[in-house]
Design a protein around this nucleic acid. Structure first.
Lengths: 218, 218
DNA sequence: TTATTATTTTTGGCATACCAAAAAGATAAT
DNA sequence: ATTATCTTTTTGGTATGCCAAAAATAATAA
């Protein structure tokens, strides 16, 4: 397998299994990578042989220790580049993902560590995702989805789970950027929209959007 | 053909035809890209079909206008990255080539122009090679190889044609870096070595090395 | 000019990464 | 429990990028 192919699979499995324990389905991998399910079946069989994943037929896959290590490395490269593009080169948070998607495959430890060092070894990227350190260690957090908040009150936007320019521009329009404080007022009985105040303006967030916004209680 | 494959061929043809008029042989391309000659024949046939090169069987190849445009774009990306790595990220001139070799394939105009702008739109890279501007325009120069100098006298090191770390480290040891002034004393009758003074020290340069050093009369 | 050497091309083959369609297997719904 | 549906796997097939060895062609030397 080509390194790039391996990297794309491992990164995707890592991202889809969030806590890195859950088993990931072929379909979800196929969707994320825009591949035919048949291709994914084949890919996973090979990754299993390479001992990067444990793949159980008709059940799902999860990363081995070796796979996890590699995945964390790619995730680190991706997120360091995203941060560098945003902070040092002036790109918008809706632009950085696509460029980092290509830059991440350039495998040069010294380069990534240099960029990280210039940025002050950040632990979070522009989307609020944690950046693994050079050893693959990731900072734990107690963030939850906006859709999972159980009580009214004050929260802070910590990240997003959808990196599409469309979604990010939508958030920006409502000033729902990383670090913004929000106050949850109520939840519409009719469609479960969340009514909240952000930057003194009342906004209605659809359940679908709330799924993609990460917050923390304050 | 994959974009990366196309880019590698076009860049190589461009570099080997120097003034961009000379016809390039398959063998030279095969050598530079570490490919079997059979593969190159096949590659050129495809590039001819794609109208990036004019390829005449058993004769050689040259770039079309379209091929030249693309080649200049890749050369620009490569040299901008080399300069950025050296000037902004602190890499040595013997390290930048290998990293730029990978970074050059990331095709994002805004990114390259941003890097160029940060660098002050440089016209030469750390090896003294000219950097095409965003429109593909390249600065002409009257540089010659050290091996082609006809008279004794004062010159200035303007570039190198060999980017291997081995060669570059050798030059650095003798302080023969870009911009250094040199004074050619004599040429050994025995082996055509060039005896010159650089940074007040006398150095003997072999004909092979002299082939790879670009200078300008001062 | 003919022989020798070097280069280029052809031929046949291999590995990778993909897909479409059919078959098998799992899940959910009635 | 038996459809119906969705997911996964198998099967057969394509395109790309590569190589080794043989054949053809060009260049060079005798």
């Amino acid at each position: 397998m080509r390194p790039e192919t391996i990297e794309n699979y491992l990164k995707t499995i890592y991202n889809l299994s969030s806590n890195n324990t859950a088993v990931v389905s072929n379909q979800k991998i196929a969707d994320k990578l825009s591949l035919n399910p048949a291709t994914v079946t084949e890919g996973l069989r090979k990754l299993h042989e390479l001992k990067y994943v444990v793949y159980e037929k008709s059940y799902g896959s999860r990363l081995t220790a070796a796979g996890s290590k590699l995945a964390l490395d790619i995730v680190r490269r991706h997120r360091i580049w995203e941060t560098y593009l945003a902070k040092e080169l002036g790109f918008g948070w809706d632009e950085v993902h696509a460029i980092a998607e290509e830059l991440e495959h350039v495998n040069n430890v010294k380069l990534i560590n240099k960029l990280a060092s210039i940025l002050g070894n950040p632990t979070y990227d522009p989307h609020g995702d944690p950046i693994p350190d050079a050893k693959g260690k990731i900072q734990k957090s107690n963030f939850i989805k906006l859709s999972e908040t159980k009580v009214k009150g004050n929260y802070k936007v910590m990240g997003v789970t959808d990196h599409s320019p469309t979604f990010l521009k939508y958030l920006e329009k409502h000033e729902l950027i990383i670090g913004a404080g929000i106050n949850i007022k109520t939840i519409e009985d009719f469609d479960n929209s969340i009514i909240l105040v952000c930057q003194k303006k009342e906004v209605s967030i659809s359940p679908k959007a709330a799924e993609c916004i990460i917050v923390q209680t304050i």
